[in-house]
Amino acid sequence: MFGYQFYWSIVWDALPQLLAGAMVTIQITVLSVAIGVLLAMPMAVARQKGSGLGYKFASIWVEASRNTPMLFQVYMMYFGLGALGLNISSYLAVLIAISFNNAGYLTEIFRGGLAAIPRQQQSAARSLGMTGFQGFMYVIFPQMFRIIFFAFITQAVWAMLNTSLGMLVGLRELAGAAQYAQSVSFRTFEFFIVTAVFYYVIAKAIELSAQFVFWRLYRN
């Protein structure tokens, strides 16, 4: 095609580097989603209340994370903190940035799920002798999780794809590993085609795993 000759053997030789980069991508995805959930849950509750310091804090977080570019957030963590004398690794910078972004989006996803559940559910849990926390965990959360499940999975896939921005701050995640390999071999098409396939496979693995989990949890 257009006189370009593919040399796939070069990609095969660099496969261990790409696999190592893919593992970094998966690690950051899992950690950033877990951190995002832990941060988003209390902020979603605060946002639902509609007033107070918690509501204002959560609103600022959501506005900042959802209305600024992901690239800007990565740069702020890596170069911005560095300019202030706080030098952190590219891995940590990308993890913090994606966790920050996840928390903002997940806050609104969770808030939407909570809004879909009648408030009488919490009162019913209280009438059974549950504390507010128990009522949330055993009555509200299971219903909310079913409502927002696939939106949550979509956010997880989005977080995985955003790890590719780590390439711009020197992180050897999947895109960074591909960028390095093609820079020393000058075989751009081969490496980026294979890398795109890697991203597709990881994304489909997340989606199919989610469908299986959803079927097991809610097959009734």
Rank of each mutant, 00 (worst) to 15 (best):
R172E: 09
S99W: 03
A203Q: 06
G80H: 06
I147K: 11
L18D: 03
T68F: 14
G129L: 10
I117V: 11
A116P: 14
M144T: 11
A103C: 06
A178T: 03
Y180M: 13
G113R: 06
S65V: 09
I109V: 12
N101V: 04
V24G: 04
G50I: 09
E207Y: 02
Q48F: 00
A159M: 07
V45P: 00
A210E: 13
L106C: 03
G129Y: 07
E190T: 06
L39H: 00
T188Y: 14
I28R: 09
S123F: 12
A196F: 02
L95F: 06
V11I: 15
M130I: 01
A203W: 13
Q143I: 12
L92M: 13
Q48M: 10
Q17F: 08
S89K: 13
A124L: 10
Q122A: 08
I35F: 04
F141D: 01
L128M: 15
I88V: 12
A156R: 05
T107I: 10
T154V: 06
Y138K: 14
A22F: 09
Y200C: 09
A115M: 10
F212A: 08
A40H: 00
G132A: 09
L114V: 09
L106F: 01
M160Y: 02
V213F: 12
L38M: 07
F141R: 03
A64S: 12
T107M: 00
Q179V: 02
Y105R: 09
V74H: 00
V33G: 02
A83M: 15
W158T: 08
L31S: 02
V213T: 15
Q121Y: 02
A34H: 03
F186C: 02
Q211M: 02
Y200H: 00
L171I: 08
P69H: 09
M137G: 00
Y78M: 07
